[in-house]
Design a protein around this nucleic acid. Sequence first.
DNA 1: CGCTCATTTGACGCATGTCAACGCGCGTGG
DNA 2: CCACGCGCGTTGACATGCGTCAAATGAGCG
Lengths: 242, 242
Amino acid sequence: MSSGSPLRLVSQSGLCEKCQVRSVAACAVLEEGELSQLESIAINKTFAPGATIFDEAEDAPSIFNVTEGTARLVKLLPSGKRQIVGFAYPGDMLGLSAHGNYTCSAEAISPVKVCRFPRKKMLALLEDFPLLKTRLLDIAAEQLSGAQDQMLLLGRKTPIEKLASFLLRLVGTHRSCDARQKNIDLVMTRSDIADYLGLTIETVSRTFTKLKTDGLITLAGKHRVVINDVSALQDLAEDSAA
Amino acid sequence: MSSGSPLRLVSQSGLCEKCQVRSVAACAVLEEGELSQLESIAINKTFAPGATIFDEAEDAPSIFNVTEGTARLVKLLPSGKRQIVGFAYPGDMLGLSAHGNYTCSAEAISPVKVCRFPRKKMLALLEDFPLLKTRLLDIAAEQLSGAQDQMLLLGRKTPIEKLASFLLRLVGTHRSCDARQKNIDLVMTRSDIADYLGLTIETVSRTFTKLKTDGLITLAGKHRVVINDVSALQDLAEDSAA
DNA sequence: CGCTCATTTGACGCATGTCAACGCGCGTGG
DNA sequence: CCACGCGCGTTGACATGCGTCAAATGAGCG
């Protein structure tokens, strides 16, 4: 790595080499020379909480890589009913789409920093870096698998099973929490959780209370959850009984 | 297969050039020479209705391309609750997965013919045919978009909206029906539909009856649906009111 | 012709949505 | 520094839509 010294050009965070999500994001497969080419087409942007990163059905000129913060991916019905189809964490790609239109909106929940790539240039670059294309294919397959899990959750799980699954997924997959202590930091509101799990806020709240009452979790402030009994939660999430 | 007349090597349907789904499947992007390489690693297989093509969580040594018939993609909970995460029609790819395990089971609904590729050889071939890899990426992105639509449906739509959306999707995207006459041939059972839409069979049945009573559709036998008023159905599906 | 299985229809109860009130934390302004 | 207001979350009372259970109908097939 470079400086440390007075000339901290690095602090713009634009230098991929120092990027915090470099090891987890798609760019992980690139070598240094390749990385600089990717870097040359990237622009860093920041979004405040609540800000829209892009809108559903809009023309999709850009592809994004989240480097900091959390975003929600939203679909709306004309009546106003909302479904959150996913959350995006550091390292996640946004805006991949086959037909050049975004399939959902993306909104910042916490302050979000992204790395923005012009779609066309990105696609052109893919032809030069087969490994990157392969990596994107893997990422897409993973996302599809996650989407299938979510369909199972939405279609066939009860509120308790839904919330248990949700909490376990947060513990398991993301650095937004400490996996050892089973300590979860919920950046999203109850309303976001409800719209993600296909429930109402009230039901989410009641279900949290129930899990707390049963001693499976502890609530420390509205956005801090401690899981006391992981295996019991897993049983609930997987619907062992009926 | 094979026989019939003495020398009908062609009838094995293995010859990609004559393949019926060639124009819609991933292989559409390949030229003739490339096609023959793909063909050399492919094996044709047939599955009777109800037969399992592959099982969830199993090691995934193969990738499939449906050439005839319809399959359902199934996920199960320990309690036996079932969610169908999709249907596969001629031209669709099955078994793409990032971690080498199938993410759901695939079962034939009608007699299904597939083209089976050894995963490793397929992946190796992808490195030689960048266009094919790009095509797969597009396909994955499309599937992801469809999955998001389905999440919206499962999480936020009422039974009527669900069924209307389902029927319209069948009309819109697949040759299993005549788009002009809005005539749909349902290969799947009510139970399949229920598990796809996150409902019970009874609710599916009642909802069909309701649409029929309201004059929006006509039922001709249990597996034949005629849509009488497409735009009214669209209004229902999109939940314009509340 | 009768059996079997898919589908339909009906009666009923409950889980979850709806509506409403309340509490709490936090920021703002006096 | 305190008072107030606002947004988010919780809790309660109530209603209803969908699931559950059960029986009837109908279609396909031996």
